[in-house]
Design a protein around this nucleic acid. Structure first.
Lengths: 273, 273
DNA sequence: AAGATGTAAGTAAGTACTTACTTTTGTCGC
DNA sequence: GCGACAAAAGTAAGTACTTACTTACATCTT
């Protein structure tokens, strides 16, 4: 139990000899960081001991302090890593890659050009939901950092959420100028979408953990569509046109999303009632 | 610095002699609980030491263990207190009063009877926002409990949030049967409103702390109106009618909100705004 | 042999919780 | 009223254990 190397589902960890073998400094450092990341996200900074980290990493405590001067420095390195790196890049072990927001930008740029509002909202929502589901550490860490008032909290926030607000807020403002949306505070509209999404992920992660017993038992795709549709109808200048718009734009947007196993666009799979 | 009695802004703490004087057991127990509640909400269970609690309460550590067998028991007592008691009742030092959901029920029962959808959503939203603002400990505690996987987390959740989902979900389902709302998952609709509200409070509490620099700089009333309106238009069968409905219903709802000294208008305490 | 990678066994300062003891307070026979 | 007295409210100084972090020394690779 003490000595085994953590193997993430889709992350190619440096992959050393499986049994407590020697590693070069870089690999060891990264391995410690990854193990610590998991523990910190589960129990917070104060709740995680260096001894636990060492045990989980399969090394002695002193090794940790050879690679990180203090526990605080280790935490900070992790926050920096999680905060500045896109989830996909992080999973692939490529630090320094573009942050999450750039993934989103790429995802919706064509929908934005085409003014396909539903696709814009829906893709952003689903991307966030998927991200939170496949990397629950992210959300937990985000919350712990905020609650524990870590100094890097604001950086984490600015790089991950604030930019998203500005990005979506800018789009909504543009569409308002074009007369497509009614006169609401753009950031209030973003708050509705982002709030629904984050709250949904948070609830599923922290309280309604058992998927079989959830209050709201829907796939990410379905949730994203519902949230996006409520927001769009909620701020549209002419809400009656929403349905048409979707039908008209659905070809473009679907083509762009994830080929291969075609996104099942079952129109209304309504549930228990 | 060591020895002073905490004095909450609006809660009539047992009010003993101001200088570390002797208290009867009940008062001391409550005082310790209140001080500990503040500390736990700030730093979490693991992050708060019994020594700190003792210092903040102006007593020796042993006193804490005279009143609570373990730190865990103290924490549990606090969760129970916060979780089962309405904020108002808690502030007034009257434990055992009806929980928050009953306040909400009372707040919107007339609007529900009148099918004034906007008023229903808006009042629920504003009540929650006000509650979170005047009692930030609540949200922080909620998050810490969930993150730290405390065993009472599910109780806290069930009594505070789940009932709200069922309550609002039931209303939405009724209005769907009446043909007023389109066919969305009622709980998805609730998630949009509750998600917007909780996320709004959480953001303001944990990240966007400085009110002058907030991304979304609106009063609770304004935020509640925006969220409610987006949701209502988002799920209305005939969104064009929303404006009219509001105008038509505004007499009823407004009468209830502001001027009515007779109506049990939700406590609009003196708060900074 | 040099230098990086590792460890066992510390240390000082916490940690939750206890023990042995003192001070205050209500009350009851007088 | 008053002193004896018991129960309650308080404390100082522990206990046994954990914490973050160090030191002195061993082992591997080149």
């Amino acid at each position: 139990m003490t000595r085994h190397v953590e193997q993430d589902t889709h992350a190619p960890t440096p992959q050393p000899a499986p049994h407590g073998a020697r590693m070069c400094a870089g690999d060891r450092r990264q391995q410690i960081a990854e193990v610590a990341m998991r523990l910190f996200s589960e129990r917070g900074f104060r709740g995680t001991t260096t001894k636990e980290i060492a045990q989980a990493a399969g090394v002695s405590e002193a090794i940790i302090f050879r690679h990180f001067a203090t526990k605080e420095e280790l935490y900070t390195a992790i926050i920096d890593y999680k905060g500045c790196v896109g989830a996909a890049a992080a999973a692939a072990g490529r630090p320094g890659q573009p942050p999450v927001i750039d993934e989103i930008r790429g995802l919706v740029s064509d929908a934005m050009e085409a003014s396909d509002d539903l696709a814009v909202f829906q893709r952003v929502a689903q991307h966030m939901l998927d991200h939170h589901e496949e990397d629950p550490e992210f959300l937990r860490l985000l919350m712990y950092i905020a609650l524990e008032n870590h100094s890097l909290g604001s950086v984490f926030w600015d790089k991950n959420v604030r930019v998203l607000y500005e990005f979506l807020g800018g789009y909504i403002r543009r569409r308002q100028r074009e007369g497509a949306f009614r006169d609401v505070d753009p950031y209030a509209a973003v708050r509705v979408l982002v709030g629904s999404v984050i709250h949904h992920s948070l609830v599923n992660l922290l309280w309604d953990k058992d998927p079989a017993r959830r209050i709201l038992r829907v796939s990410n795709e379905e949730a994203a569509r519902q949230f996006a549709e409520v927001l769009l109808r909620g701020i549209a200048a002419d809400p009656g046109a929403v349905g048409q718009k979707r039908a008209e734009a659905s070809k473009r947007s679907n083509r762009n999303r994830e080929g291969g196993a075609d996104v099942k666009n079952h129109r209304d799979k309504n549930k228990k009632r």
